[in-house]
Design a protein around this nucleic acid. Structure first.
Lengths: 346, 346
DNA sequence: CTGAAAGCGCTTACAG
DNA sequence: CTGAAAGCGCTTACAG
């Protein structure tokens, strides 16, 4: 015999009330024609019994699980918790549960994670892909959150425009020599940001990009990036491609006795949790996670509602770009007039 | 008619192979007695067809969903992503999916989230409760991750012992006047940590606790904690109750021209992502998330496997405490001999 | 070793 | 307005 559930089911409510299960189902869902009075009685009784509908039964019957999958590369990376939260908000507002799968930054794991989600019967999924992965067609609708430079049905922040915001801000403050600090030349997000910053250079401005190998300091022993030296060479603004790198830059400069923002400005990207907490608080650029998550989830939900499941379905035909917003805090300020040499040595 | 799935089901494999669904099911699961040869044929054919078992059907039949719920207060809080990741690892290694529910720090939402997870048919759940919440008994096994000071079946890091590690470390370095910095007097985690630090004070040592109202700086305009002044008063060590506060302290001191670790030491808790990244890298105390998650998940899985679902079942009779580990980095060093006054003014 | 049958809980045409 | 019945896909005793 199949095991029965702990709680009451439709049939128990039905017999206990002397009506049919169909009527109970209709009354509870408000779908079939049931007299107002009976609806009342049934709902009351169901609540009394603490009836909880079985998702398994419903899913089997309707072919819908009411669950969305979320695949991300590494939730411990400080950028993703916010987006995961925004997706959970949006999904749960739309009545969906969220099944997470952390692909641990690994492509094979990502593929496997996607398969597992399909097995679990998700109605659709949102994938934040590992760097430049193409998602092989799956058996359910997929929305991708990535860079605009990724081809396909993607929603994303406009990282390039975010870069322009930074460039404009620094230009307005009179900075002419900008050191861009990144840690991953393969990242399309970082490349888009660099592209935006460069495109925002005005006549007489000049930028140079420093790629850091390792963000952590080796064994805690410290291996400075030589930023104080860069400041001496004439760079007055340090534009990091993420707040984590901005933090690295900010603290190294402070430790070296370079004052931020009096001597040099530091900016970041992403408005991560510590940005408003550090001294000086960090000027950065924020993406509207709620908006991005909302677009992805509602595109997904619309597809699920409209169509039956089809092979490798993608939910957005066009790429959606969501504007990033500049947050000016204390770490950026007017450029100091160049000291002796106006042209930094390279 | 009920909608049929996109992919093949047992019945299709069965007819296509001229055997019964029971045999196919047995062959695939390896349970009933099926001849080796037939098993081979069936599995091959299933793979060829790209058969994916329906979780809905299985769940309905077995009463198990193969999914665990994870309820947490705020996944954007930097402490939780790591634990969420560890839980996802452990669960997925045990063959379970993880449905997340972010309670947004709100107790009502937390209750609702738990109900929703039950509706979705999770086999068990892990709750990281909002501050000092008691979990009302639910219809499925529950494991709680919290402080040891929480009563009930809880697994947790030993925050008190973590505090002792910090106190011992600072004492060994010769520090006598310790300023403890916290931001939440209601938090049992922070109180346990304070308790541990205080308990580790040696004769001649003295500590004072500073509770910060707001971690962020108001509107980015800056509202210093007055730590430089505290340093002048004779405090040589600043023990923050979390790395975020440590970061606040570290950058404020640096900005004020106080050198860390030459002038004063700064320590944190939790080994968050930026701890090894800042200059100087941060001495902190780490909890073994993998261990905690492993204990919670395996206790849950064992309960699920052993018993049928019962009302408000709790999975661990005893509180499990997992030791925290001191990570010494550059932000802590030998105490400077006290300047003029050895007794700090309070 | 293999198959026929029941049943998990639900929803949805359809008949009354 | 209400009910009887079919069926979603699976697993598990049970019979052969």
């Amino acid at each position: 015999m199949a095991p029965s559930r702990s709680g009451p089911n439709l049939s128990r409510i039905a017999t206990s009330l002397g009506v049919s299960v169909a009527t109970v189902s209709n009354a509870l869902s408000g779908k079939g024609r049931v007299s107002g009075q009976l609806i009342e009685r049934i709902r009351e009784h169901a609540a009394e019994l603490g009836y909880v509908p079985s998702q398994a039964g419903r899913a089997l019957r309707t072919g819908r699980s009411g669950v969305l999958g979320l695949v991300l590369p590494d939730i411990a990376n400080p950028l993703f918790p916010k987006i995961a939260q925004a997706i959970e908000f949006a999904a749960s507002a739309a009545g969906y549960g969220v099944l997470i799968a952390d692909s641990r930054g690994d492509i094979a794991t990502q593929t496997e994670a996607i398969d597992r989600l399909v097995e679990r019967g998700v109605d659709g999924m949102i994938v934040i892909p590992r760097r430049a992965t193409r998602i092989s067609s799956t058996t359910c609708p997929v929305a991708i959150i990535d860079t605009p430079s990724t081809p396909g049905n993607t929603v994303s922040a406009d990282h390039w425009q975010g870069g322009r915001e930074i460039a404009d801000h620094l230009a307005d403050l009179g900075h002419r020599h900008i050191l861009i600090i990144g840690n991953n030349q393969e990242s399309s997000v970082q490349n888009d940001r660099v592209g935006g910053i460069r495109a925002g250079m005005r006549p007489g401005m000049h930028s140079e990009t420093l790629w850091i190998d390792r963000l952590e300091q080796d064994g805690g022993r410290g291996c400075p990036l030589g930023l104080a030296e860069k400041a001496r060479q004439g760079f007055t603004a340090f534009a990091a491609l993420s707040d984590l790198q901005a933090l690295r830059a900010l603290t190294e400069l402070q430790q070296a006795g370079v004052n931020v923002p009096a001597d040099v400005s530091v900016t970041g990207f992403d408005d991560l949790i510590w940005s408003p907490v550090v001294t000086p608080s960090l000027t950065t650029v924020r993406m509207d996670m709620d908006r991005i998550a909302g677009i992805a989830v509602s595109a997904l939900v619309a597809t699920i509602r409209a169509n039956r499941i089809r092979e490798g379905m993608l939910v957005t035909a066009e790429i959606e770009r969501v504007a990033m917003q500049l947050i000016v805090r204390q770490s950026s300020g007017p450029a100091k007039p160049a000291p002796e040499t106006s042209e930094p040595k390279t």
